[in-house]
Simulated assay, not measured.
Amino acid sequence: MKKRTNKLIRSLSEIFEGEPWYGQSVMRKLENVPHKIGYKTCIPESHTVAEIVGHLIAWKTFAIEKLESNEVYDIDIDSERDWPKVEVNSAEEWEALKAKLVAAQSSIYELLNEQTDDSYLDEKVKGKDYDFEYLIRGIIQHDIYHIGQIGLIESQLKRKELDSGVFKA
């Protein structure tokens, strides 16, 4: 029986491409962000939307590696692997980056669907002090956190770019 796994998959899906109670999912939010602001920041020290997407991909990749029992794969906070350099200079690059995000999410679904029961959820993640259920819930929470950041960047840039035509009225 995979009741817990199926519930986690539903939550992952709702937050990533569904209709969460609080507003837009990750992909709905990203659909509203024009590629022309994907590389812009509100203040020089902040991350761009494209960098946040790269960061989301990094942590989904971490989850994939751990679900595949890779004990040595890790991400150091604030490292290049945690926040990879990502530049978006065209609509094609923006679409390719979003496609990479979708592919990472799809890999997580596939790995969770391959499980025959929920027992793995209580197993420790190799090389970590937490179990797989905690890891998957963390991916959900991480997506929600960064949806907020993307929304904030989008709203601030929308005000700045109002007359530029980047955002359609």
Rank of each mutant, 00 (worst) to 15 (best):
T41I: 11
E154K: 13
Y22K: 04
E92I: 12
P44F: 10
S13A: 07
T41R: 15
D122G: 12
L121P: 09
K124C: 09
E71C: 05
I43M: 14
Q141D: 15
N32G: 15
I139R: 13
I140Q: 04
F16G: 02
I77L: 13
Y130E: 12
I108K: 00
K36A: 07
K36D: 04
Q149E: 03
V86Q: 02
S107Q: 09
L162I: 12
L121D: 10
E154W: 08
W83R: 15
A58V: 07
I15V: 01
L111G: 01
K40H: 05
S106V: 09
W94T: 12
I37Y: 09
K40L: 14
I52T: 06
Y145K: 13
N70M: 05
E14D: 13
E95C: 04
W94S: 12
L97D: 04
H142S: 11
R81Y: 03
I75D: 02
A91Y: 08
I140P: 01
Y120W: 11
L56W: 03
T48S: 13
V166F: 04
E71A: 10
D118K: 01
K40T: 09
V53T: 02
G18D: 01
I153C: 10
E51R: 15
E71I: 06
G127D: 10
I57L: 07
Y73E: 05
S107A: 10
L101R: 14
G18T: 00
E80Q: 12
I108A: 04
I77Q: 08
A96S: 11
S13M: 02
I15Q: 01
P20W: 00
E19I: 05
Y120S: 06
A169L: 14
I75R: 02
A91I: 06
F62S: 02
D117E: 14
E93A: 15
I37H: 10
K158P: 00
P20G: 03
I108H: 08
R159W: 09
Y145G: 08
D74W: 08
K126T: 12
S119V: 12
R10V: 03
E17L: 00
I43P: 02
A99L: 13
V86N: 00
R81L: 07
I139M: 15
A63I: 01
K128H: 14
V86F: 02
H142I: 11
K160H: 01
L135A: 10
S119Q: 01
V49C: 04
L111V: 03
K2L: 11
I75S: 02
T48Y: 07
E68C: 03
S106H: 11
Y22D: 08
F167D: 14
V72L: 11
E19Q: 10
W21K: 12
Y73F: 15
I144F: 07
S90I: 11
N70R: 03
D78W: 07
L30Y: 13
S106M: 10
D122P: 06
Y39S: 14
T61F: 06
E17C: 00
E154Q: 15
Y39C: 09
V26W: 01
K29I: 11
V72S: 12
K60Q: 06
Q105P: 00
I147C: 08
I136K: 08
